[in-house]
Amino acid sequence: MATISLKVNEKSHVVDVEARTLLVELLREHLRLTGTHVGCDTSQCGACTVWVDGKSVKSCAMLAVEADGAAVTTIEGLSGNGKLHPMQTAFHTCHGLQCGFCTPGMVMRATELIQRNPNPTEDEVRHGLEGNLCRCTGYHNIVKAVLTAAETVRGGAQ
Protein backbone atom coordinates (compact mmCIF):
# COMPACT_ATOMS: atom_id res chain seq x y z
CA MET A 1 0.00 0.00 0.00
CA ALA A 2 1.14 3.52 -0.72
CA THR A 3 0.00 6.65 1.05
CA ILE A 4 -0.65 9.57 -1.23
CA SER A 5 -1.93 13.05 -0.67
CA LEU A 6 -3.71 15.02 -3.30
CA LYS A 7 -6.32 17.70 -3.76
CA VAL A 8 -9.56 16.74 -5.38
CA ASN A 9 -11.96 19.56 -6.19
CA GLU A 10 -10.06 21.87 -3.83
CA LYS A 11 -10.32 19.43 -0.95
CA SER A 12 -7.21 17.75 0.46
CA HIS A 13 -7.14 13.98 0.84
CA VAL A 14 -4.62 11.55 2.27
CA VAL A 15 -5.40 8.05 1.03
CA ASP A 16 -3.87 4.59 1.19
CA VAL A 17 -4.00 2.81 -2.12
CA GLU A 18 -2.47 -0.18 -3.82
CA ALA A 19 0.15 0.86 -6.34
CA ARG A 20 -1.98 -0.56 -9.14
CA THR A 21 -5.05 1.49 -8.24
CA LEU A 22 -6.07 3.65 -11.16
CA LEU A 23 -6.87 7.30 -10.60
CA VAL A 24 -10.44 6.62 -11.69
CA GLU A 25 -10.73 3.84 -9.10
CA LEU A 26 -9.46 6.20 -6.43
CA LEU A 27 -12.06 8.77 -7.41
CA ARG A 28 -15.00 6.41 -7.79
CA GLU A 29 -14.37 3.78 -5.14
CA HIS A 30 -12.29 5.48 -2.46
CA LEU A 31 -13.64 9.02 -2.66
CA ARG A 32 -17.11 8.05 -3.94
CA LEU A 33 -16.97 10.67 -6.67
CA THR A 34 -19.00 8.59 -9.10
CA GLY A 35 -19.51 11.33 -11.68
CA THR A 36 -16.35 10.16 -13.44
CA HIS A 37 -17.25 7.09 -15.49
CA VAL A 38 -15.52 4.12 -17.05
CA GLY A 39 -16.65 3.18 -20.54
CA CYS A 40 -13.73 1.15 -21.85
CA ASP A 41 -10.50 -0.55 -20.89
CA THR A 42 -8.24 0.75 -23.67
CA SER A 43 -8.48 4.52 -22.98
CA GLN A 44 -10.48 5.33 -26.11
CA CYS A 45 -13.85 6.48 -24.79
CA GLY A 46 -12.88 9.42 -22.60
CA ALA A 47 -15.77 8.96 -20.14
CA CYS A 48 -13.19 9.04 -17.35
CA THR A 49 -11.72 12.41 -18.34
CA VAL A 50 -10.75 14.64 -15.40
CA TRP A 51 -8.25 17.43 -14.99
CA VAL A 52 -4.91 16.83 -13.35
CA ASP A 53 -3.21 20.13 -12.59
CA GLY A 54 -5.57 21.80 -15.03
CA LYS A 55 -5.07 19.45 -17.97
CA SER A 56 -7.60 16.93 -19.16
CA VAL A 57 -6.39 13.37 -18.83
CA LYS A 58 -7.97 9.94 -18.93
CA SER A 59 -8.13 8.85 -15.33
CA CYS A 60 -8.27 5.20 -16.43
CA ALA A 61 -4.79 5.58 -17.95
CA MET A 62 -3.11 7.04 -14.89
CA LEU A 63 -2.24 5.47 -11.57
CA ALA A 64 -3.52 7.03 -8.39
CA VAL A 65 0.07 7.10 -7.09
CA GLU A 66 1.01 9.25 -10.07
CA ALA A 67 -1.44 11.85 -8.81
CA ASP A 68 0.38 12.15 -5.49
CA GLY A 69 0.76 15.86 -4.88
CA ALA A 70 -1.49 16.83 -7.78
CA ALA A 71 -4.67 18.86 -7.92
CA VAL A 72 -7.47 16.90 -9.54
CA THR A 73 -10.73 18.39 -10.79
CA THR A 74 -13.70 16.17 -11.56
CA ILE A 75 -17.12 16.97 -12.96
CA GLU A 76 -18.37 17.40 -9.38
CA GLY A 77 -15.86 20.21 -8.88
CA LEU A 78 -16.05 21.96 -12.25
CA SER A 79 -18.32 24.57 -10.81
CA GLY A 80 -19.04 25.13 -7.15
CA ASN A 81 -22.15 25.11 -5.03
CA GLY A 82 -24.37 23.14 -7.36
CA LYS A 83 -24.17 25.86 -9.97
CA LEU A 84 -23.57 25.09 -13.61
CA HIS A 85 -20.43 26.12 -15.48
CA PRO A 86 -21.23 27.82 -18.82
CA MET A 87 -20.24 24.57 -20.53
CA GLN A 88 -22.73 22.63 -18.43
CA THR A 89 -25.39 25.26 -19.12
CA ALA A 90 -24.73 25.03 -22.85
CA PHE A 91 -25.02 21.23 -22.79
CA HIS A 92 -28.39 21.70 -21.09
CA THR A 93 -29.80 24.35 -23.40
CA CYS A 94 -28.45 22.71 -26.57
CA HIS A 95 -29.54 19.17 -25.56
CA GLY A 96 -25.95 18.03 -25.71
CA LEU A 97 -26.60 14.97 -23.56
CA GLN A 98 -29.00 12.05 -23.60
CA CYS A 99 -28.11 9.13 -21.34
CA GLY A 100 -25.56 11.28 -19.53
CA PHE A 101 -22.87 8.63 -19.25
CA CYS A 102 -20.25 10.21 -21.52
CA THR A 103 -21.28 13.68 -20.39
CA PRO A 104 -18.89 14.28 -17.46
CA GLY A 105 -15.83 13.37 -19.51
CA MET A 106 -17.15 15.24 -22.52
CA VAL A 107 -17.78 18.38 -20.46
CA MET A 108 -14.34 18.26 -18.83
CA ARG A 109 -12.57 17.88 -22.16
CA ALA A 110 -14.75 20.48 -23.88
CA THR A 111 -14.11 23.00 -21.12
CA GLU A 112 -10.36 22.60 -21.47
CA LEU A 113 -10.77 22.88 -25.23
CA ILE A 114 -12.36 26.32 -25.07
CA GLN A 115 -9.95 27.47 -22.39
CA ARG A 116 -7.11 26.78 -24.78
CA ASN A 117 -8.93 27.83 -27.92
CA PRO A 118 -11.59 30.37 -26.95
CA ASN A 119 -12.92 30.81 -30.46
CA PRO A 120 -12.87 27.38 -32.09
CA THR A 121 -14.34 26.48 -35.46
CA GLU A 122 -16.80 23.58 -35.74
CA ASP A 123 -14.00 21.50 -37.26
CA GLU A 124 -11.66 22.30 -34.37
CA VAL A 125 -14.33 21.29 -31.89
CA ARG A 126 -14.96 18.01 -33.68
CA HIS A 127 -11.26 17.16 -33.79
CA GLY A 128 -10.75 18.42 -30.26
CA LEU A 129 -13.29 15.85 -29.01
CA GLU A 130 -11.48 12.94 -30.68
CA GLY A 131 -10.78 11.35 -27.33
CA ASN A 132 -14.42 11.16 -26.26
CA LEU A 133 -17.08 8.77 -27.52
CA CYS A 134 -20.81 9.37 -27.36
CA ARG A 135 -23.33 6.81 -28.65
CA CYS A 136 -26.50 8.86 -28.10
CA THR A 137 -26.23 12.32 -29.58
CA GLY A 138 -24.41 11.84 -32.87
CA TYR A 139 -22.28 14.71 -31.50
CA HIS A 140 -24.43 17.28 -33.35
CA ASN A 141 -25.72 18.97 -30.20
CA ILE A 142 -22.48 18.45 -28.30
CA VAL A 143 -20.63 20.43 -30.94
CA LYS A 144 -23.35 23.05 -30.83
CA ALA A 145 -23.05 23.23 -27.04
CA VAL A 146 -19.28 23.67 -27.13
CA LEU A 147 -19.56 26.48 -29.68
CA THR A 148 -22.30 28.08 -27.61
CA ALA A 149 -20.31 27.86 -24.39
CA ALA A 150 -17.26 29.34 -26.12
CA GLU A 151 -19.36 32.25 -27.24
CA THR A 152 -20.79 32.72 -23.75
CA VAL A 153 -17.37 32.66 -22.13
CA ARG A 154 -15.94 35.06 -24.71
CA GLY A 155 -18.86 37.40 -24.12
CA GLY A 156 -18.34 37.24 -20.37
CA ALA A 157 -14.65 38.03 -20.71
CA GLN A 158 -15.24 41.27 -22.51
Binding site: K55, S56, K58, L113
Partner: peptide, 9 residues
Protein backbone atom coordinates in the same frame (compact mmCIF):
# COMPACT_ATOMS: atom_id res chain seq x y z
CA UNK B 1 -0.76 11.63 -31.79
CA UNK B 2 -3.72 9.88 -30.16
CA UNK B 3 -6.13 12.44 -28.84
CA UNK B 4 -5.97 15.57 -26.69
CA UNK B 5 -6.03 13.75 -23.36
CA UNK B 6 -3.33 11.32 -24.46
CA UNK B 7 -1.20 14.21 -25.71
CA UNK B 8 -1.50 15.82 -22.28
CA UNK B 9 0.16 12.80 -20.61
Amino acid sequence: IGDAQIRNR
